[in-house]
């Protein structure tokens, strides 16, 4: 029986889809069977980031409406030998084409065959969000070090706490080192105390993340990129290993030792 993890943020553009694609890739690199579900019906793009767009035959709505079997709709990523699959969203319908009960059933079915199911949630807190969290038993909240993103993350955490889901974990994305050092950006400590949920990982802002997703190759496959390493570390933490947070700079080490303490406490 696998774990179903929903990746959500409330605010758009903080990197939910990029995070889903990269965590899926990184978990598959660890040898686990992973299925990604894109629930952003009408605005699908997880397939683009993974470079699987032109192999889609059936989609999520086809499965829900019974036009095909689940395994027919799953797109296999050939780069990972039978480990990484994608269930793409439909592009022609909208969020109301699916309801939470149907999603729950679908995820339960997929849990039998996969170790991890990552559900990419659309922005917002309406129908699409409700569908996305319906089948999940864990949640990752993605935010960036901006007030607006943290505010929306706070709202989402509040909603997740009311759902039947384990306490959500936090990924802080798009960290810009120089802004954080100069105090012009919220620092990691501030964000974690404000949201008071466990920190799963931090990812630096890197131009290569964008170029890689444009090429349809998740950055996590890149062996020596800092953001890629961050995603691989998060994946390992999801699998239960304890990996210290990577330090952004040498001078900041003591600051991060505090955070290591925070992580190991749980």
């Amino acid at each position: 029986m696998g774990d179903a993890i929903v990746i959500t943020s409330g605010k758009g553009g903080v990197g939910k889809t990029t995070t889903t694609a990269n965590l899926g890739t990184a978990i598959a690199m660890q040898g686990k069977r992973v299925c990604l579900i894109d629930t952003d019906i009408g605005l699908r793009n997880l397939d683009v980031v993974l470079g699987l767009e032109n192999r889609i035959i059936y989609d999520l709505v086809d499965v829900i409406e019974g036009r095909c079997k689940v395994h027919q709709a799953l797109v296999k990523d050939k780069r990972f030998d039978d480990l990484l699959y994608l269930l793409p969203a439909a592009q022609t319908s909208d969020k109301t084409a699916v309801d939470p009960e149907q999603m729950k059933e679908l995820v339960e079915q997929l849990k039998q065959d996969y170790d991890y199911i990552l559900i990419d949630c659309p922005a917002g807190i309406e129908q699409g969000y409700k569908n996305a969290i319906a089948g999940a038993n864990k949640a990752i909240v993605v935010t960036t070090p901006e007030r607006s993103a943290v505010r929306d993350a706070d709202r989402i955490v509040g909603l997740l706490e009311q759902a039947e889901i384990d306490p959500p974990m936090l990924v802080i994305n798009r960290i810009r080192n120089h802004l954080m050092e100069s105090g012009d950006m919220l620092d990691i400590d501030e964000i974690t105390t404000h949201l008071s949920i466990d920190l799963l990982g931090i990812v630096v802002d890197d131009d290569q993340v964008i170029t890689a997703s444009n090429k349809g190759e998740p950055i996590a496959m890149n062996p020596d990129n800092k953001a890629a390493l961050a995603y691989r570390n998060i994946a390992k933490r999801i699998l239960g290993e304890s990996i210290p947070l990577m330090s952004l700079t040498e001078e900041k080490k003591t600051f991060f030792q505090k955070l290591f303490g925070f992580m190991s406490k749980k």
Binding site: D152, D154, R155
Partner: peptide, 8 residues
């Protein structure tokens, strides 16, 4: 005992 979050 808990946090009153945004929107609550």
């Amino acid at each position: 005992a808990g946090i009153i979050r945004s929107g609550q």
